[in-house]
């Protein structure tokens, strides 16, 4: 049981224009009470094709688009069943073609609460159910209306996620989660824009989205290594398409489907508490966004803040 508490934090960064901390909260693992995990994840995402609406195309005035991210994260066990998580990604964007300058800066501060609702032996394994709430808000005055270079969607986000995991005693597990992402408006620096009609305001309505994950994975070496494969889909509930040969804007219906492969190793004896992770992800379908391929890695370190008696 306690071994499962070895954990953490993944950040298979989706490469979405918005980094989704929910990603880290899509993991069914929890820190035990008074345990703290510190992590830093580095992500390198690129695309040279993008979906204009549903049409996959190239644009030589962008060439290859690159987005790199360094994200410090924290996870802390308030209790064995309730964790708080926080992250603050630093992002830089650039393109190989064209004349537009890339940008760099802190994106959104995210804080999450993760709660285990249910955890019980069923058959040859254990079923756990968790609920996660994530609050995200821009951490700098980056301009969302500078796509595709902008650091994020520039809006407050609230995510509610339900998650179920079934883990066999032999280390195999499957996990699935579904989230509703409520997004507010983003303030831009012009007070007129076209979104299937005129809008006379500096506010853009950023579409709400749903996010589905399905993961299959296995623990190896007495829970020192886990390896998993994930299918993910992100779907906006409204929004317009990128107009012909035009820039995206935050009102767009951003969608993607992605597969990712992830591995994480926990040092058990020497360097106890230290963990390493790595992943690769690739989008294979989408709408109004770059066809990202991401590769990333990170270091995690966990320890008891207060030694329980």
């Amino acid at each position: 049981m306690r071994k499962i508490i070895l954990i953490i934090i993944i950040c298979v960064v989706s490469g979405a224009t918005k980094t989704v901390l929910a990603q880290t909260t899509t993991d069914a693992l929890l820190m035990s009470k008074h345990e703290l995990c510190i992590a830093v994840v580095y992500d390198h995402g690129t695309w040279d094709h993008y979906w204009e609406g549903a049409n996959l195309r190239v644009n030589d005035n962008i060439g290859t688009f690159t987005r790199t991210m360094a994200m410090p994260m924290l996870a802390y066990g308030i209790t064995d069943k309730l964790n708080v998580l926080a992250s603050l990604p630093y992002i830089a964007t650039k393109s190989s073609g064209g004349q537009l300058v890339g940008v760099a800066g802190f994106q959104d501060f995210n804080v999450a609460l993760k709660y285990e609702i249910f955890n019980r032996e069923i058959g040859k394994g254990k079923l756990s159910l968790q609920g996660v709430g994530v609050f995200g808000t821009p951490a700098s005055n980056y301009l969302s209306d500078y796509m595709p270079y902008s650091l994020g969607l520039g809006t407050t986000e609230f995510t509610l996620r339900g998650m179920a995991e079934y883990k066999l005693d032999n280390g195999f597990y499957i996990r699935s989660s579904y989230a509703y992402i409520k997004r507010g408006e983003t303030e831009v620096e012009r007070d007129y824009y076209y979104n299937n009609g005129s809008y006379y305001t500096t506010l853009m309505d950023v579409p709400d989205a749903t996010n589905f994950y399905g993961t299959i994975g296995k623990w190896f070496f007495n829970y020192a290594l886990r390896v998993e494969a994930t299918y993910q889909s992100m779907n906006c509930l409204s929004g317009d398409d990128i107009r012909a040969y035009n820039s995206p804007q935050p009102t767009n219906k951003f969608e993607y489907e992605q597969v990712s492969f992830f591995a994480q190793y926990f040092f058990k004896t020497q360097l106890k508490g230290l963990g390493l992770l790595g992943y690769y992800s690739k989008m294979f379908d989408g709408r109004n966004m770059g066809e990202f391929a991401n590769i990333g890695g990170g270091v995690t370190y966990q320890f008891k803040v207060i030694n329980a008696q």
Binding site: G133, F158, R183, E185
Partner: peptide, 26 residues
């Protein structure tokens, strides 16, 4: 902690229904 969670959810619901406003189109 269940209470904490319920409060969290309640706040979530309030945020869900308070964000959207009518944006001027003319």
């Amino acid at each position: 902690y269940s209470i904490v969670l319920y409060i969290f959810l309640l706040v979530a619901c309030v945020i869900f229904y308070s964000c959207d406003s009518e944006l001027p189109i003319r």
